[in-house]
Design a protein around this nucleic acid. Structure first.
Length: 152
DNA sequence: GCCAACGTTGGC
DNA sequence: GCCAACGTTGGC
């Protein structure tokens, strides 16, 4: 089993939205960055995914979800009404994939970005590197352990 | 709202 | 293939 972290704007889809769905999986769609997409493709059912809340009042890691379905064609790329529409994507060779994620737990208290940045064991995590915009990233076993410890 | 840093686009 | 211009991300 592998570990991952994804960024989300809680206004769009935060841990609370997964919690409301409980055992019902939700699509993680709209990724439009090649590096992030390549990581999505590597996700396997059962992998754990940290949900990071960005561009909001309380920035940081908020909870954990689980991969419920491996990568499949993201339908929003072909939907002209979707904000994620990609007119250059060829239906014969779709550019973008989505996965399905299902709720696992909400942290008792959010781990703020400042704490993540201050933790030496996380210095290699792309999330805390200056200017990093990667929205889907792998988390090593060690980084995972560090974060679990911080979560209490 | 500001703005630095980034990824992508497109002219050459 | 280079690189300037552009649009976006995301913390503050």
């Amino acid at each position: 089993m592998a570990y991952w972290l994804v960024k989300s704007e809680p206004d769009e889809c935060g841990i609370e939205d997964f919690e409301l769905q409980q055992d019902k999986a939700s699509p993680w769609a709209g990724v439009r960055n090649y590096q992030a997409r390549n990581f999505l493709r590597q996700m396997a059912v059962g992998d754990r995914v940290l949900i990071y809340h960005s561009s909001c009042r309380n920035i940081g890691i908020a909870g954990v979800v689980r991969v419920a379905r491996e990568a499949y064609t993201d339908p929003s790329q072909f939907d002209p009404d979707s904000p994620y529409h990609d007119p250059k994507s060829d239906p014969e060779a779709p550019r973008w994939q989505a996965v399905d994620l299902v709720y696992e737990r909400t942290l008792s208290s959010l781990i703020p970005l400042a704490h993540l940045k201050a933790e030496p064991g996380l210095s290699e995590l792309p999330l805390v590197r200056k200017g990093s915009r990667l929205s889907v990233m792998p988390v090593t076993d060690h980084q995972w352990d560090v974060i679990q410890r911080m979560a209490g």
